[in-house]
Design a protein around this nucleic acid. Structure first.
Length: 289
DNA sequence: GCCCAGGTCTGTC
DNA sequence: GACAGACATGGG
């Protein structure tokens, strides 16, 4: 099947982002294609997504894509790469902003790469707090390879992120053994329990960003940064804004040639120009590093 | 060895 | 509400 791409889409940005760690186990980038093992209800597929001009050619390595699942596949990919969003308003904001206008020259067309699964997004936010990104990927790899489901196909091992049920059933000491801190282990298991029990569901967070923020920050281990990170990457609110993010701070420091990181107050002042598109501004600034 | 890393919680004032 | 200290480990 085929999926049309937005006119300004540049796959090299996507490839760069998806390839940024060799510890990533949840998708594979090779040649001109992206591969991912997905479950659509009772159907399992290894999607092969190939870039061909302004369209994607999508296939299933495990067989055909069932006709009744085509819409699911299209929606899955469009949500993953935010293909359905019109960025014209964001571009106008960039062009009117001294700092962002420069970024637009190289990044135009870049879209926020999403994380479908709420548990995975929250886990990544918890794991990645206050550590460098390479180490965060190491921890994620350990979680996936120890507690995720594996499948062998075509001489490779394909992985699913661990389910909340599995993680909730572990012991703190076990997760400590992966080099997670005691606190992070507790946070992870708490979130796993909350989602696994059905008390926290992604679909309940999609309508109202303020409600979603309150619900997320009520979880132990999820503070303002992590909540906004999840609002941005998983729930796709374009106004989510992880102000406390050190990557964002470093990007602004670099763009403005500052000799120190900007304060939160300074960031909020800059963001006055980005109303409604703070998440995209943040993502573009991340990409500028 | 030192500083920093895609922060959050807890206790104190 | 503001602020300091603890958390704990890896990367540069």
């Amino acid at each position: 099947m085929r999926i049309d791409l937005p006119g300004d889409f540049h796959p090299e940005h996507l490839f760069r982002y998806l390839s940024r760690s060799d510890k990533e186990r949840l998708h594979l980038v090779e040649d001109n294609s992206v591969y991912k093992w997905v479950k659509a209800g009772s159907n399992e597929m290894i999607l092969s997504i190939r870039f061909h001009g302004q369209e994607l050619q999508v296939a299933n390595l495990l067989g055909d894509i069932p006709p009744e699942k085509e819409a699911w596949v299209q929606e899955y990919i469009e949500e993953w790469w935010d293909l359905g969003l019109n960025l014209d308003e964001f571009y106008r904001i960039c062009n009117a902003d001294g700092m962002l206008s420069g970024l637009l020259e190289t990044l135009r067309g870049v879209r926020i790469i999403g994380v479908h699964d709420l548990f995975e997004a929250l886990s990544w936010a918890i794991v990645g707090q206050q550590i460098n990104l390479p180490f965060a990927y190491t921890l994620k790899q350990r979680l996936v390879e120890n507690y995720g489901e594996a499948m062998e196909y075509d001489g490779r091992v394909w992985w699913q992120f661990p389910t909340p049920e599995i993680i909730a059933g572990l012991k703190v000491e076990t997760l400590r053994g992966l080099a997670l801190t005691t606190k992070k282990s507790e946070y992870l298991m708490g979130v796993a329990e909350e989602i696994g029990s059905g008390r926290l569901r992604k679909e309940d967070l999609l309508d109202d960003v303020d409600h979603a923020y309150r619900r997320l920050t009520a979880l132990r281990g999820i503070g303002p940064w992590a909540a906004n990170y999840v609002l941005m990457r998983c729930l796709r609110y374009t106004k989510a804004f992880p102000v406390g993010d050190v990557g964002l701070q470093n990007a602004v420091k670099k763009q403005l040639g500052m000799d120190r990181k900007p304060t939160e107050k300074e960031l909020l002042e800059l963001a006055e120009n980005w109303k409604g598109w703070e998440a995209y501004a943040t993502f573009y600034l991340w990409q500028s590093l």
